Structure formats: C-alpha cells, structure tokens
Computed example of a mutant assay.
Amino acid sequence: MRGAARPASCAASRRFRPRCGPDSGYGPPVPNRGAVRLLVLLLTASVLAVAAPALADEQVPRPVLNLDFPDPAVVATPNGLVAYSTGDRVPHAWSRSADGPWRRGPGLLTHRPTWSRDGGIWAVDVARVEGQWLLYYATPVRGIGETGRCVGVARSDSARGPFRPVGRAPLVCPTYARTPTAQDPLLPRDPTLPRAGVIDPSFFRDADGTAYLLYKTDRIPSTVRIVALAPSGQRVAPGATSLELVRSQGVLENPVVTQRPEGYVMLTSEGDWTRCGYATRWLRSVTLLDWAAAESGMLLDVDTTGVCGPGGADLVEGSGGRTLVFLHGWTCRSTDLPCTGTGKWDHKPRQRGIRAMYAAELGWVGGVPEVTDWLRAP
C-alpha cells in the first residue's frame, strides 16, 4: 500500500549492522529470494540490452522523411511523387522515388477561402480529375468551437500548386456552422453526433467512373460518410445526399478507399493521435455504399511494426499492381528512432517528438492488405 510504513529488516539496516541476522540480529544474513530473482532478471535484461540493440534497431522501420509531416497524402506524377501534410497552407514535399531523398517545400494553398477563419489546415487529399489537380482540405470555420472545421476544394494545373480555393461556400459543412450553405450540409441533422464539423476528406473514383468524397464527422462518436461528386470533382453531384458508412464510439478517422477484385478496402486510423497506440485498421466490403457487414482487421500498430502511432495512412497505386502506403509515426530526440513509452508526445517538449513520414509496400492476400517491406531513406 503506497505510503504505508514497512517493518525494519536486516537487509534495510545491513549498512550499519554488517553481522545482523534474523531474530537476534546476529549471524549470517538470509538472502531474500524475491530480491535475488529480481537481481537475476535485471542482470539478464542488461546483458540482452547490451548484446542486442543493433539487431533491434535494424528491425525497426525508419522514416523516409524525418521531418514533422503529419497525415501525409501522396500522389504520383510523371516527375515523381508529391506529398502533402497537415499544417499552415498545406506544406508539401517531393521526391523522384518513394524512399527519397524527399525535399520539403512551403504551403501550396494560396489563401484561405472567405468562409474560413485563421488556423491550420488538417489532413488533405489530392487527386487529378479531368486534367486539374484538386486539393480537398479541412479548414477552421466560425460557429463550431475552436477546432471546428469544414471541407473545401482548391484546384491547380500542377501537383505542386499553387492551389486556389474553388467556390464561395464549403463543399461539406454542417448547417449549424456560420458559413454559406454547403453543397453537402449533412442533412438530415443527426442529433447523436457532436457539433464539431467535418475533417479528413478523401477522393475515390469507382470502377464505373463515379467520383466520391469520403470524410469524417469530428469528435466521438466518429462516423465516416460519403457523397457523390460531379464529374469535375469540384462540386457535389446534383441531388446527391451523403450517406453514413461506418460509425465508431471511439476515434475513427482518415478514411482511404481502394478497390480490389475481392471488394472495397478502407483504411482508417483509430485511437489518440498523440500516443503510440494510434493505429491503422482495414475494413473490407463487397459494396461501396453499405459497410454494415464489413470485415475488419489491424494493418499497422506499434506492437507489430515498432512504429510509434502508425496512422494517417494514404495509398499510392503504382505500375504493375504495386501498392505503397505512406503514413506518419512519432520519432523523438532528433533521431530517426520511434518514440518509446507512454503519454502524449505533443505534450513532451524535452522529447522533441515529431510525426515523421514512413513508407511501406503492401501485398494483398485474399483481398486483405499486409506490409511486405518497409522502405528506408538512402
């Protein structure tokens, strides 16, 4: 019991009575078996720690970009790869190959739309639609608290911008926000969801050519919704109404969908993004608009990867059926090693935690994703 006094023992007073023994205080000391076991375990752990750190380090994935680059969205272009992250005006990075070297550049959004207020842009997605590069982003708005956000779209002739906001109203935004009426106002209003806005937009084009936007309703319970887009990708399709696909009582975010022969696969992040327990889960459904009977499993977590908080994942489908997944994870103390331990890494300034970008190759077994190889920076 913490704070309770313990009886004095020979072991405790041995420094002052070297000959003390049980009962009378004289005779040879009797070893404490629990203490001996603990000492053996500690010595064994020390030996293992000295003998095996290099091997352990070799097995831990390394980031391909060890700079703060959370929620990476990555696209392939004829000149290489371009990545976008959470941050002011959407910071970006580019590289000739997935393993780097990556070079980080400034924000690519020219300005916030008139319906936005100041604040960071969260978890974007970029897609090429009808010859234009489209940037879907979540920006702060008025009327729904300090962190409340809504989704807008911007366009550019180049994957590296600059991107200019499209339209005078949000693409997706609840009716209770102080903005012009959005094209998808989340009607009818669901009273079981918090008044917190929408984040994490993600573009998907189905095999029949229909374009969709997925997004998350913020806070908990969390939901992932989908709405059909016009062919240009810059507006909600006329008469379209968003549908709820998945609901969780905890945090479920960053939806990304791809289509496989066995069905549709969605990747989502779950948990607290500030902790090592943040993880990436997969779901699989035979239909795009109904996930009630979806299968589910864990793709990336700290126990199986060694990466602290592997989340914010995005997929890049390459030539020859190659699939790459980009994600972030916490590294600490200006090294490329994962943070270890518990707690919120954004609350530990001495650890200098950042969310670095990792990359891995995915294989598909029966339509289920699994990591086959981790990429490393050259």
Rank of each mutant, 00 (worst) to 15 (best):
L186V: 09
P188E: 01
V30Y: 07
N32F: 12
S242Q: 10
C173L: 03
V166T: 05
P338V: 01
G321E: 09
G197A: 06
R376T: 14
G105Q: 03
V316R: 00
G120T: 14
A93F: 07
D346C: 06
R19P: 08
V47T: 12
T192Q: 13
A54M: 10
A377F: 08
T147H: 14
R284M: 08
S46A: 15
S232V: 04
L214M: 14
R235D: 13
E253T: 05
V325Y: 04
G277C: 01
V141R: 00
P185E: 10
W115N: 10
Y212W: 15
A52H: 02
G353H: 02
R350T: 15
L213V: 02
P238D: 09
R17S: 10
G209P: 03
G145R: 02
R260Y: 10
L324D: 06
R178S: 14
Y212Q: 05
S248V: 10
P140S: 05
D57I: 09
T223M: 12
L324C: 07
W133A: 02
P261I: 12
V265E: 01
V50A: 14
W330G: 11
W345S: 07
C276W: 05
F326H: 00
P72L: 05
P174S: 04
P140C: 05
R103P: 02
V64S: 04
G34Q: 11
G119F: 02
P194T: 11
L48H: 01
S116K: 06
A294E: 03
C173W: 04
W291Q: 04
G209V: 00
P29H: 05
A230Q: 06
A154P: 03
G320S: 09
S156T: 06
I144Y: 00
G145F: 06
D206L: 09
G100T: 11
V47F: 12
A98W: 12
D206V: 04
W122V: 08
V90L: 13
C308I: 02
L67Y: 01
L48W: 09
R2Y: 14
M298L: 15
G148A: 08
A207G: 11
L245N: 10
H347C: 13
Y136W: 03
S9T: 15
A207L: 10
G152A: 06
V60H: 00
P261E: 09
P29L: 08
G250Q: 13
D301Q: 04
P191W: 03
R260N: 09
P91R: 06
S9V: 13
G107F: 07
G161Y: 03
W133V: 01
P255W: 08
W94P: 00
G277E: 07
R160L: 15
S97R: 05
A8L: 15
F16S: 14
D346E: 12
R19Q: 15
M357L: 13
V60M: 09
G3H: 07
V126D: 03
A35N: 10
W364D: 10
